[in-house]
Design a protein around this nucleic acid. Sequence first.
DNA 1: TATAAATAGGATAAATTTATCCTAAATAAA
DNA 2: TTTATTTAGGATAAATTTATCCTATTTATA
Lengths: 144, 144
Amino acid sequence: MFSKACEYGIKAAIFIAVNSSENNRVSPKEISEEIDSPQAFTAKILQALVRNHVIKSVRGAHGGFEIAKDKIATTKLSEIVYAIDGDGIYKGCGLGLHTCNENHPCPVHDKFKVVREELREMLENTSLEQLALDIKAGVSFLKI
Amino acid sequence: MFSKACEYGIKAAIFIAVNSSENNRVSPKEISEEIDSPQAFTAKILQALVRNHVIKSVRGAHGGFEIAKDKIATTKLSEIVYAIDGDGIYKGCGLGLHTCNENHPCPVHDKFKVVREELREMLENTSLEQLALDIKAGVSFLKI
DNA sequence: TATAAATAGGATAAATTTATCCTAAATAAA
DNA sequence: TTTATTTAGGATAAATTTATCCTATTTATA
Ligand code: FES
Ligand code: FES
């Protein structure tokens, strides 16, 4: 469904949100250990999230990754997915036609569109805050 | 969402269904032209569909690929997706945890599960016959 | 039986995604 | 200002997916 990069990006963002809510910056090393992902690859994904203004990085001693507290509640999963995987999952044809077009639909267009919209709404309505709270409460998990 | 192989496999199966309903066997060459896919790669995917008993192949002169007429109505998209991409899309964790487990859920489990079930139901309730009829009627398309 | 037509399948290559390594640049603090 | 720490980013490699090529096998028919 999502690329590995996107899976890592989502989990990393949640972990950063958990920590930023406690005024704690985190490093790629900590992140990759907590979400069980390859460190250098994860660092690349974090760069992409920084470039797309999803998270913030602070270089140098005492640096690390963080999310502004007021952004935790407003940042939606869709922004992370969009920053890493692009909008193909929202807009692309399920059978790979060049464009998904009502006037030139693929065989599954009507049915696929419904599922795709459901996914889009889910991603657009789910905030980092919601997900981070569950991690804090110990009712959801980032690895294994 | 689906792999290229799976996209080609679905489109190929629909095209074969359209032709088998008119007692017409088709070759990888015809198929790949009609669905705009690489011929040799498409041939491999057709082999997989034959091995999984989704379609039937007839070797030798006057051979080609076909689907038994009575299978066109009973064959669901889910069988094709399963034969090519496996069950990851139905059962796998959206964030890549080793297993999707109610008792050890990832942060998006509850929300993701809903979308995944919707997709599964769509695939399990959509038959090749429905899709082939739209192609025949010229209201849906296999390429461009 | 010989030939032509057609799928099966092995070997290989290209492209993309995933992953690693090393150095540069920035920053805080001694 | 020097040093230690930390992210940025280029280069490269490994793994996977996608794609191609060639030969083997099967089958209908002349
Ligand atoms: S045309 Fe294929 S999903 Fe819309
Ligand atoms: S545990 Fe991630 S989707 Fe169920």
